[in-house]
C-alpha cells in the first residue's frame, strides 16, 4: 500500500461566516479501510459531499481517484460508489431489477450488467432473494443489495455513510466481512460509523471535531496516544464538547 487514492490538503468549506470544515489534511491509500469518525455536526457529511463531488469546497485542494474536486466532479462520480444508511433503492423493484437499473444509470452495456449482476449476487449471497420485491425484504438483505449496487460500476473508492446503523449484531459483523473482501480486491473503503467497536476494524481512522481533524492514525496508535483502552475512550477524549458554544 503506497498509492494515495484520496489526497486532501488545506481543504475548507464555509457556509456564510461558519467554517464547517477548516483546513483539513489527510490521505487515504488504495485498498485501505479508512474510518471517518466525529460527533454529530463535526463536519463529516460536508467532507464526504466535497469528496463525492456534490458540493464545491471554499478553498484548498483535494484529489479523489485521480480527479480534482474543483472542476472534475463528474469524473469523480463515475469512479466512486456511495452507500448511505438511507438506501436509495427502489422498494417496488426486485433485487435484480435494482441492480440492472443502477448498472444502466452508470452506462454499462446489457452484457456487462448481466455478468456483473451475476457476480455481485453470488458474492453477497443474494441468490435466494433475487426475484423478490425489495419492500418484502428485511433490512439486512437491503443492506447487502445497497453495497452491491455501490460496486456495480467497479469504483475505485466506495463511501459508506453509517452503513450498519440498526442492523442486528450478526448481520453487522457479516457486513464488515464483505467490507474486508472488497478491500482485498483493491477497492478503497471510506466508512463513517457511530459504533466505536467498528472503528477498531478500520486500518486507519480520522477523528473530526468542530470542522478540524484532531486525530489520525491506526486504532492502536490512537489508543496509545490517548492512553485509552478502546476507541470509545479515544472518542470521548477528543470530542468532549464545549457544550453549546456555537
Amino acid at each position: 500500500m503506497s498509492e494515495a487514492v484520496i489526497q486532501v490538503e488545506n481543504l475548507t468549506k464555509k457556509f456564510g461566516d461558519f467554517y464547517a470544515v477548516k483546513n483539513i489534511d489527510f490521505e487515504v491509500e488504495r485498498g485501505e479501510v479508512f474510518g471517518f469518525l466525529g460527533a454529530n455536526g463535526a463536519g463529516k457529511t460536508t467532507v464526504m459531499k466535497m469528496l463525492c463531488g456534490l458540493i464545491t469546497p471554499t478553498s484548498g485542494k483535494a484529489m479523489v481517484a485521480g480527479f480534482n474536486v474543483f472542476g472534475q466532479q463528474n469524473e469523480i462520480k463515475k469512479n466512486i460508489g456511495y452507500m448511505s444508511q438511507r438506501f436509495s433503492l427502489y422498494e417496488d423493484l426486485t433485487v435484480i431489477e435494482n441492480i440492472t437499473f443502477y448498472g444502466g444509470i452508470y452506462g454499462l452495456t446489457n452484457a456487462e450488467i448481466k455478468e456483473r449482476a451475476y457476480r455481485l449476487i453470488e458474492m453477497h449471497g443474494l441468490g435466494e432473494v433475487k426475484n423478490q420485491l425489495l419492500a418484502s425484504l428485511p433490512l439486512g438483505w437491503k443492506q447487502k443489495l445497497a453495497f452491491s449496487v455501490a460496486l456495480i460500476h467497479r469504483p475505485q473508492i466506495v463511501f459508506l455513510d453509517e452503513p450498519t446503523g440498526g442492523v442486528d449484531p450478526i448481520t453487522r459483523r457479516q457486513f464488515w466481512e464483505s467490507i474486508y473482501e472488497a478491500a482485498h480486491s483493491g477497492i478503497t473503503l471510506f466508512v463513517t460509523t457511530h459504533y466505536m467497536d467498528e472503528a477498531e476494524y478500520c486500518d486507519r481512522i480520522s477523528m473530526m471535531v468542530d470542522g478540524e481533524i484532531k486525530g489520525l492514525g491506526t486504532p492502536t496508535e490512537l489508543k496509545q496516544l490517548h492512553h485509552a483502552k478502546n476507541m470509545d475512550e479515544v472518542f470521548v477524549n477528543l470530542a468532549r464538547k464545549k457544550e453549546f458554544i456555537e
Partner: peptide
C-alpha cells in the same frame, strides 16, 4: 439515541 454520536448518547 439512534444516529447520535457516543458523547451525546452518554
Amino acid at each position: 439515541t439512534t444516529g447520535v454520536d457516543p458523547i451525546s448518547r452518554k
